[in-house]
């Protein structure tokens, strides 16, 4: 459209120039993308190499001899089965937290009540408190509640979050009041209105939050590390830290442990990436 006034020759040359630019940008991004992907590629390839091959001074790119021995060792020499179980428990609990965030967001969005604005302001204010300030007091509070070295102590501090509540509230204010009133007139209880009408209408934000919650739960490291004294409560990331300390020289085993942790998340992310990336646009990030 911009070229309607231009003579034919310069039209074709500007098309050519544009195609050229597209190629240059594509090549720059490919090089950058490869650089970013190097740690992932190297991790996965090394995890299938026998230990002796990893220790060679001239590294090989592809394993000369593919082996899954390292992955077996994770479960035989280390307790990765147990760590996996604990990690899944942490993830399940974090979904309970997601549900609590949605509940709070709903009340802030759709109910008039005394102290609503003050409480919502308080929720937002918690976003500004740095983790380093609360870390020690939270540990002392959990200690006072006798929750150190328990699963409850690991999941409780991060169960609800201001950012999640805020996102749910923003999205739920757009739900029409008439819809909720109609359901109440039909005799639906408040919980049922929330469960059967509000939650299904919140799907886009629920999808984003669900995936981010899963990723955060799966990756959770600091609280399990601080709270868990027994190995029986270790999550995958704490177990991996232990492996790094115990088998410091065995890089093949370390890479297998990392691959075991990273690849499931990467697969889930690739399947759902559209929701996450579009989610930022939904949240009104402009």
């Amino acid at each position: 459209m911009k070229s309607s006034a231009l003579p034919k020759e310069s039209l074709s040359s500007s098309v050519k120039q544009e195609r050229m630019q597209q190629w240059v940008v594509g090549i720059i991004l490919t090089i950058g993308g490869l650089l970013v992907a190097v740690p992932f590629i190297w991790m996965i390839l090394s995890s299938f190499k026998p230990e002796s091959e990893v220790m060679q001074l001239t590294p090989t790119l592809f394993p000369e001899q593919w082996t899954i021995e390292n992955f077996k060792n994770l479960f035989v020499n280390m307790n990765f089965g147990l760590y996996l179980k604990n990690t899944i428990i942490v993830v399940l609990w974090s979904f309970v937290g997601l549900f609590l965030n949605a509940m709070a967001g709903y009340a802030f969005a759709k109910f008039e009540f005394k102290g609503r604005n003050q409480l919502f302001f308080m929720v937002l204010a918690t976003m500004m408190i740095p983790g380093q300030v609360t870390m020690i007091p939270v540990y002392l509070i959990l200690n006072q509640m006798q929750l150190t070295n328990t699963m409850a102590g690991i999941v409780l501090p991060g169960l609800v979050g201001a950012f999640g509540i805020f996102l749910f509230r923003q999205f739920m204010t757009t739900i029409p009041d008439e819809l909720l009133e109609a359901a109440r007139l039909d005799g639906a209880s408040e919980l049922r209105v929330f469960w059967q009408i509000v939650l299904p209408m919140t799907k886009p934000i629920l999808a984003v939050q669900g995936i981010l919650t899963f990723i955060a739960g799966w990756n959770s490291f600091l609280w399990p590390l601080i709270i868990a004294n027994d190995e029986s409560l270790y999550t995958l990331s704490v177990g991996l830290q232990l492996l790094k300390g115990q088998y410091g020289g065995n890089f093949a085993l370390q890479m297998a442990g990392s691959t075991f942790m990273v690849v499931p998340i990467v697969i889930i992310f690739i399947i759902f990436q559209k929701h996450i990336i579009d989610g930022y646009t939904i949240s009104g990030m402009k």
Binding site: S237, L240, M261, V262
Partner: peptide, 14 residues
């Protein structure tokens, strides 16, 4: 985006 979702311990190990 991938590095952002990767666990920090795994990142450190690699």
């Amino acid at each position: 985006y991938m590095p952002s979702i990767t666990n920090v311990v795994a990142v450190a190990v690699v």
